[in-house]
């Protein structure tokens, strides 16, 4: 009884769109969303044979791995430092949590301006310090635009990740470190042998939640490059959005949705299986 409303709402708002997507995926749909008839695998074939799709699929994996990997690599040492007792720790924590408060889309707008070739502060700074001699057109080439987007992806993921890791660190009793110290363990040894293993569940959850989030992250790339130039910063979700609402191809877009859903489901299944196995 008590969970019924939650089931209904979730089923309605998730189940019905899901049904619609399956229906569109196997239909011939016009630009204006009219279902003209059943088309079987045609949309699937069109999508799979589109090099942009394959490209976006690969890029999605690169995007997810680099952003999540980068986030963890930065967040772990930061969390370790923030656990230490030092002057101004509260201030440092507050500052590092700040990116959380900017909407992702707005953060992307601000960064886009910071990276503006002519008037942005990034080029101005780099020129000032003599690192580059003329303004770099950051967003004009995928070779520079995409790494910039990855970097921003990392920066905005850090607050959440640090929070989880800090929570994990605080759950490790400090006595065991003192005991280890008495037994003559060096700091890196106690990090490697005690902190890391005890942090594992927290690392896992941080990785899983970040993967879900980053995999589906739409605003940064959409606002900064819309998948261009030449489709070379597309990830699946931006490609899917462009297909359905800009190129007027709802059928193939629904197929891309399904593919992404399939990936998400299998990742979830693997994760649950891992959890079960670990008990």
């Amino acid at each position: 009884m008590l969970i019924l409303p939650s089931l209904l709402l979730a089923l309605g708002v998730i189940g019905y769109p899901f049904y619609e997507i399956i229906r569109l995926a196997v239909s011939d749909v016009s630009r204006f969303g009219m279902v003209r008839g059943f088309s079987g695998w045609e949309n699937f074939n069109r999508v799979v044979s589109d090099p942009v799709f394959v490209d976006a699929l690969v890029r999605t994996l690169v995007w997810t791995v680099t952003v999540v990997g980068g986030t963890i690599l930065v967040a772990l040492p930061v969390a370790l430092v923030l656990r230490e007792d030092f002057w101004g720790r509260g201030v440092a924590r507050t500052i590092l949590m700040l990116p959380w408060s900017i909407a992702l889309s707005m953060a992307a707008v601000v960064w886009l301006w910071a990276f503006n070739a002519d008037y942005g502060m990034i080029n101005a700074g780099l020129q000032h310090w003599g690192i580059i001699d003329k303004p770099l057109q950051w967003m004009a080439r995928p070779e520079t635009a995409f790494p910039v987007e990855v970097g921003i992806g990392i920066v905005v993921s850090i607050p959440f990740t640090v929070t989880i890791l800090l929570g994990g660190l605080s759950s490790i009793p400090s006595e065991i470190y003192e005991a280890a110290k008495i037994d003559g363990a060096r700091p890196w040894q106690s990090f490697w042998l005690m902190t890391l293993p005890m942090m594992r569940p927290f690392m896992n959850i941080a990785i899983v939640l970040n993967v879900i989030h980053v995999f589906n992250s739409f605003p940064i790339i959409w606002v900064m490059t819309q998948g261009g130039p030449n489709n070379r910063t597309h990830i699946l979700v931006t490609y899917l959005y462009e297909l359905s609402f800009y190129l007027g191809r709802p059928g193939p877009a629904a197929v891309v949705s399904l593919v992404v859903l399939l990936i998400v489901f299998s990742a979830t299944a693997v994760y649950m299986w891992l959890r079960e196995r670990e008990g």
């Binding site: 070739a117 057109q137 130039p229």
Partner: peptide
């Protein structure tokens, strides 16, 4: 160099 640099922008 006869155009603006980075036309894809």
């Amino acid at each position: 160099g006869l155009t603006e640099p980075g036309p894809t922008n």
